[in-house]
């Protein structure tokens, strides 16, 4: 079984970029979040077909001067928080867009 983790944005959210931040609101409990530039990279790459591992090595480490293991630890923390609030879905298999409603 693949150990990759595929990320997909929930469709039951509101979001809007404001300058260098992204505002996101959960539709289930109206909690407001903001994502900084690096977190936005993960968010925008969470298309259901790109594993977290590829996002970290291919996007974050490629654009920022950060060690892969450090980037992965921070990315995992962010993903866990977003999953906990129902904003992001994680799966061991690619996620189809139609199944993203939470």
């Amino acid at each position: 079984m693949s150990e990759k983790r595929y990320l997909a944005r929930s469709t039951a959210i509101a979001s809007r970029a404001m300058g260098d931040e992204l505002m996101i609101m959960s539709a289930t409990n109206s909690t407001l979040f903001t994502l900084n530039e690096i977190a936005m990279l993960i968010w925008e790459a969470a298309d259901g077909a790109t594993p977290l591992e590829d996002i970290v090595t291919g996007r974050i480490c490629a654009e920022y001067d950060v060690k892969p293991e450090v980037a992965m630890t921070e990315a995992e923390k962010l993903v866990a928080e977003l999953v906990g609030h129902g904003l992001l879905l994680v799966s061991r298999e690619p996620i189809e867009s139609l199944t993203r409603n939470s």
Binding site: M18, G19, E21, M23, L32, F33, T34
Partner: peptide, 9 residues
């Protein structure tokens, strides 16, 4: 956070 975003807007 909402107030902060409002101030930024």
């Amino acid at each position: 956070l909402g107030a902060e975003m409002n101030a930024k807007a």
